[in-house]
């Protein structure tokens, strides 16, 4: 087994950053405004929604699992927070964000229960949970766009700028830093990768593997819920299936960031790079005003190229 020292960032982690720079430089040939501060700051703001989701997804993927319930944890958190914030009662308005985060954690615990206790493949279990959350949302809202609005705090978090830096980006970075400290300084981070490599061996060394799995899914749920809160603040509303377009880019961002989909190996720094890359790619493709069809094709081809590059590098090493 090849060991990668955590102190020296491996090239895999830097690839998405190189890619992002390449996108900015390349894009600026056609659209000079891309190099402007306003455009880049806006990209950071948009990237923070995907970033929070990818942060949680990284944890789960490090475990060797996957969380397909992201779309409706996001949607549910957005619906919950906007309906609390829109209720007009100051106490409920204050509860909007905490309630959404608790909702995310609860769904995460349910996800963890199926995966850790019932030992159902996470891919199917979280898919079923996603379907149930969709059902609850439809039942609650009658299939229409839910009523309610974002609270001023949510709008501030999602859209305000401090000294030109979007607050949403700051939120994303605070979450990422907290997670990085958790992964580096506590046993939890090591257990996470250990389970990703070999769950049986980790269990035999005396680690309570189910609790690690529960915790990872719960944290991932909180991250997705936070993404939902921000997105609801950004749009000033919640709408049906607002999370659906985020699921696949989230996984793509994590994988492009060098995290192995099999678990065990990966980093948060890489994921941040992957998120920036995907956001820039999507944004530049839409600035270019090409058709939806070509946007999909180019998106697919570039992701394949990035993944093949990873393989080539690993073979060379």
């Amino acid at each position: 087994m090849k060991t990668t020292s955590p102190r020296v960032p491996s090239l895999d982690i830097l690839v998405p950053y190189f890619g992002s720079v390449l996108l900015i430089v390349g894009g600026s040939f056609f659209f000079p405004q891309i190099l402007g501060f306003a455009y880049l700051a806006q990209q950071l703001q948009i990237a923070s929604f995907l970033g929070l989701l990818a942060l949680g997804a990284t944890l789960v993927i490090l475990l060797g699992h996957i969380d397909l319930s992201v779309p409706w944890v996001l949607g549910g958190a957005a619906i919950l927070s906007t309906s609390l914030a829109g209720s007009g009662d100051p106490a409920l308005i204050a509860l909007a964000i905490p309630a959404a985060l608790i909702f995310g954690a609860l769904v995460g615990v349910i996800n963890g229960f199926g995966v850790a206790v019932l030992r159902i493949p996470s891919m199917v279990w979280t898919l079923a949970i996603n379907a149930m959350l969709l059902g609850v949302a439809v039942l609650n809202t009658g299939g229409f766009n839910p009523k309610g609005e974002a609270s001023t705090t949510m709008i501030w978090l999602a859209t305000a700028k401090l000294a030109g830096i979007p607050v949403a980006f700051a939120v994303w970075m605070v979450f990422t830093l907290a997670m990085a400290v958790l992964l580096k300084k506590s046993g939890f981070g090591r257990y996470l990768s250990a389970i990703g490599y070999n769950e049986k061996a980790t269990f035999l060394s005396g680690v309570s593997t189910p609790s690690v799995i529960f915790a990872a899914f719960a944290i991932a749920g909180v991250c997705s819920a936070m993404g939902g809160v921000l997105l609801a603040g950004y749009a000033n509303q919640a709408y049906q299936s607002m999370g659906d377009p985020f699921l696949l880019p989230t996984i793509a961002a994590v994988v492009i960031g060098g995290t192995s989909i099999l678990g065990g190996r990966g980093s948060l720094v890489g994921t941040v790079g992957g998120v920036l890359f995907i956001t820039l790619l999507t944004s530049i493709l839409s600035v270019m005003q090409i058709s939806d069809a070509w946007r999909n094709i180019i998106f697919g081809v570039i992701i394949i190229a990035m993944l093949l590059l990873q393989t080539l590098r690993r073979k060379a090493a």
Binding site: I66, L248, I251, A252, V255, S260, I261, L262, D292, A293, W294, R295, N296, I297, I298, F299, G300, V301, I303, I304, L307, L308, T311, R314, K315
Partner: peptide
Amino acid sequence: GRIQPIVATLATASLFVGL
């Protein structure tokens, strides 16, 4: 290409939908 099936098909899905 030695890409994990789940990610490889995720990317090709985008390509096929584009086509």
